[in-house]
């Protein structure tokens, strides 16, 4: 039996012992002494990567957990009578968190016990000198790496001699996801009073389109600032790019819907 469509299959016999494992070993499943009815656990093949803007590569570490069950073969029985649960996790094949001149961090786990603790996700930064590029990536020293939890469950039911039905559920949830915020977003309407210090006239949460500023010290030149004909008032327009953030996040973070996979028996019985 072989998973398809990016879903690898863990095959279990009716007693719940595994006869096959992930990906590369799935050939073993094909030669396993199959019984007529068995349940299999489907799993995603690899942790997903997502790429944020401007070269920031984000790793989604993916500990996995799942619930599976097996059913004793009994004619006419449609309800599972005995369920077993298990937990399983697997680290991603790529371990690099962020990289760039002056910054590199990585951490990987292998066969670590669950649950993953918060301290295990605290990646430390390791600046590496010398810095020979004009471009340097600078991160806050307290930056915590994002991660994704994924879980899945699947039930497989053989249908006749050569077919099986698998119903899989795959879920994921991102934590500490990075949001790329352009520096310009934080720049707002400025004014310099007689103290000589530039002051923010406006709350920095709101973005103002900066590309049209020819000179930050002359905000009156901004095309979005408009004085009333009598000069008593002026208005300006800001924007909050919420829509952009909601578009970035699903790259690695939103809970996946139920996933379906078809499986077909291959080989000779």
């Amino acid at each position: 039996m072989e998973g398809q469509g990016g879903v690898n299959t863990v095959c279990r016999d009716s007693m719940g012992s595994c006869t096959g494992t992930y990906g590369s070993e799935r050939q073993r499943c094909l030669h396993a002494p199959w019984r007529r009815r068995e349940s299999c656990i489907a799993d995603l093949s690899a942790a997903r990567y997502s790429t944020l803007e401007h070269g920031v590569v984000q790793l989604c570490a993916a500990p996995r957990s799942g619930v599976g069950g097996s059913r004793e073969p009994r004619m006419g029985d449609s309800v599972p009578r005995r369920w077993r649960s298990f937990l399983r996790y697997r680290h991603s094949s790529g371990d690099l968190g962020y990289t760039g001149i002056g910054f590199q961090t990585s951490k990987s786990y292998s066969a670590a016990p669950l649950p993953i603790t918060a301290s295990e996700f605290d990646f430390s930064t390791t600046p590496v000198a010398p810095y020979t590029s004009n471009n340097a990536y600078i991160f806050p020293s307290h930056l915590q790496a994002p991660y994704t939890l994924e879980w899945n469950a699947a039930v497989q039911q053989s249908l006749g001699k050569s077919q099986a039905l698998t119903i899989s559920y795959v879920g994921s949830s991102g934590r500490r996801l990075l949001q790329f915020v352009t520096a310009a977003v934080a720049l707002v309407l400025l004014a310099t009073n007689v103290t000589g210090r530039a002051q923010h006239l406006f709350d920095a949460r709101d973005a103002i389109e900066m590309s049209r500023f020819s000179n930050l010290n002359q905000p009156e030149e901004h095309s979005l600032i408009s004085f009333s004909p009598d000069g008593r008032y002026f208005v300006f327009v800001t924007s909050r790019g919420v829509w952009l953030r909601t578009r970035l996040n699903p790259e690695c973070g939103s809970t996946a819907p139920v996933a379906w996979a078809d499986s077909f028996a291959v080989g000779r019985r």
Binding site: N193, V194, Q199, L201, F227, G231, V235, T238
Partner: peptide
């Protein structure tokens, strides 16, 4: 869209105050 009263901003610019006028 935010609105400022010009006189308040002008007063702030001429003052030494750090209390910025709010829109």
């Amino acid at each position: 869209m935010w609105i400022y009263r010009s006189s308040r901003v002008g007063g702030f610019l001429r003052s030494r105050s750090t209390l910025v006028p709010r829109p």
